[in-house]
Design a protein around this nucleic acid. Structure first.
Lengths: 242, 242
DNA sequence: CCGCCAACTTGCTCAAGCGCAAAGAACCCC
DNA sequence: GGGGTTCTTTGCGCTTGAGCAAGTTGGCGG
């Protein structure tokens, strides 16, 4: 029902060696795990899994970009995370319980490696570091969401948007002659779902920033021209805007 | 510098057997782990740890109630979680990295058992289930915060407050003749920090609910009189309020 | 090159709920 | 039991940003 080829590409093993999950493992051991990987390629718009699917695979993105979104009962969505190559997703499948809490959609043509939890847990016996690493990853996630929860609760839209743009620039940014391009197609709606606001507010703020020379915007495109300006918006202490 | 007595009280072992972290372990093994526990008793207002402290202990609350809060740089706070007996806190210390992301304050006289990560990780070698359980706990946290993030982003204050009250009632509720008392002292400010609003809005909504017979309120006190009414507020689909 | 469609912009209106101020209630401690 | 502290209530004004409508832009397929 899906194309699952054992793949031991240089790209994959390279990604794996840099992935926190496998940090501290002997490189030849990582190769053995790589050999056990399956792979799946998707084109833009397709899904690796949907929110609510049983969580039975741990994925590692090798190429492309993903959007992880969570929908509420009434259809409202939030864009929880953008995934770039070298990053795990669906990691909670390691806990061997429950369903995926988000949907994972390819924003581009994408290639991911995956394992079944049982396959990885076999290695845990010999390398407890794997378990520790997995916990670190999850602990990081908990912290990240607590942090963003707090920001959503206490900060204004403009600041949250500035943070999101800076985060994206750091994560997916590509240098161009205009500035740092956020290298995946994100609509205003997507940005709104990342920051807990509406596409209208995102549009207004981006245009205002553009007129101040902080960014350049286009259709599904944002280029950060003057990062420091955004940092000021994101970090400056409470004081009224001037 | 602190009172750390090995304690093997019936209360502790009972809590431990019911704690997800130790689920599936042989009971005599749980006893051995219990024997390795340290303990610490606090009075209301004291802290087990502060946000930013190095995370070097995993705690299990045996008696009392805690509030886990996270503060932003500008002093704004969010109340992330209320801890009741039988629940772990500071669990991210298991990942053996980083600092506590929240402060853990006793809301009552409280007793907690704790271990050092190394002590527990020793047991992991023999019982991989421990590692799986730990991951399950963390995965649950991730999910919970994603869920609450989404709710904060998409729902109105009244609904979020209804959810919070119902959650508290389920978690710490005590039956009285008036209804279900939320059995820990929570100020309007605390409730505001749980729901991402202000104490004013909390006060107004609670009083409105009281006049509708849904709850009874008092100083640092909320009694749920008619849970179903709150459920309707928390769950009813989008439609305008009537 | 044309037409369509999705994404985006922008003006306007309005409600939710924030924030302040002032007053009132509950509790605690000496 | 007096006095002070903390918590709570409530009225009011005002800002943020949501929501809607109308129009514009840009890209893509035919």
């Amino acid at each position: 029902m899906h194309m699952a080829s054992p793949l031991i590409s240089p790209a994959l093993t390279e990604q794996m060696l840099a992935t926190p999950l496998f940090a501290g493992l002997p490189p030849d051991e990582v190769l053995r795990i790589a050999a056990a990987a399956h792979s799946k390629r998707l084109t833009a718009g397709e899904y690796y899994f949907l929110q609510g699917d049983p969580a039975e695979r741990i994925y590692l993105l090798v190429e492309g970009r993903l959007k992880l979104t969570r929908a509420a009962a009434d259809g409202q969505q939030a864009l929880m995370r953008v995934v770039t190559p070298g990053t795990l997703f669906g990691a909670l499948a390691l806990a061997q319980a429950g369903d995926y809490p988000v949907s994972a959609q390819a924003a581009d043509g994408s290639l991911a490696a995956y394992w079944l939890p049982l396959e990885l847990m076999g290695f845990v016996q010999q390398f407890p570091a794997l378990a520790i690493n997995a916990m670190k990853i999850m602990a990081d996630h908990v912290q990240e969401f607590q942090e963003r929860y707090l920001q959503l609760a206490t900060e204004r839209v403009e600041r949250r948007l500035a943070r999101a743009i800076l985060r994206l620039a750091a994560q997916t940014g590509r240098k161009t002659d205009e500035g740092v391009l956020i290298d995946l197609p994100l609509t205003r709606q997507d940005l709104a779902e990342m920051t807990g606001t509406t596409l209208f507010s995102v549009s207004r703020i981006l245009n205002q920033w553009e007129s101040q020379g902080l960014v350049k915007v286009g259709r599904e495109k944002v280029v950060v021209v003057f990062p420091h300006g955004l940092v000021r918006i994101a970090e400056d202490l409470p004081g009224k805007k001037e």
